[in-house]
Amino acid sequence: MAEILSLDHLTKVYKGSDKPALDDITLTIGKGRIVGLLGPNGSGKTTLIKLINGLLTPTAGEIRVGGFAIGPESKAIVSYLPDRFCLPGDTSVKELIGFYRDFYSDFDTERAYGMLESLQIDPLSRIKTFSKGMKEKIQLILVMSRRAQLYVLDEPIAGVDPAARDYIIRTIIGNYQPDASVLLSTHLITDVENILDDVIFIKEGKVILSSPVEELRIAQGKSLDAYFREVFSC
């Protein structure tokens, strides 16, 4: 099986809304690809990501991750970085690592401690003692220390200073495995376009483009950022 993720006529309509947040989406993501999910706010990026992670249930259609329907088996191979910080404040970093190791057999404890050390984070400190930026880096470290088959990163570099952005992007590259894929959603395209294999443009719940990035550069003669502005001009 060459694809890690497949969406088949996926639709999501929120309760009390007549317009679908996601409208009949069919796409696949291959193994070993870093894919960007790009679109303006409200286009359905976060809805799609939540559906993949089982935080929402579809109105229609099917999702398969590694061949599995969304459930404990799919969750075991997906590593998810939410767009907000979600970890409890009064545990220590070490306890969190223990938590991840307890639940995920693919968690690489050594790698986690290595990354913490390189950022000079004391594992015994409690989460609430860290700044916002540090907390998000810790969450990123926990997510990237798993040897998952699909990493889903929701706006990993939004609201983060440029140095931290570089760190995050280097971490994503450094974590690359040929049999693992990354799906990341963002609207800060300039920072990430050089690391993307493929891009998906999503607008008002529909996929309007799905293409390898280099081919787009050749075909359009411009950067992904410039092309995005063209496509999504208001």
Partner: peptide, 14 residues
């Protein structure tokens, strides 16, 4: 490949 990709800030496949 991976080390150079990290240095350059590009996708390892590229």
């Amino acid at each position: 490949v991976r080390d150079l990709a990290m240095e350059a800030g590009v996708n390892p496949n590229t």
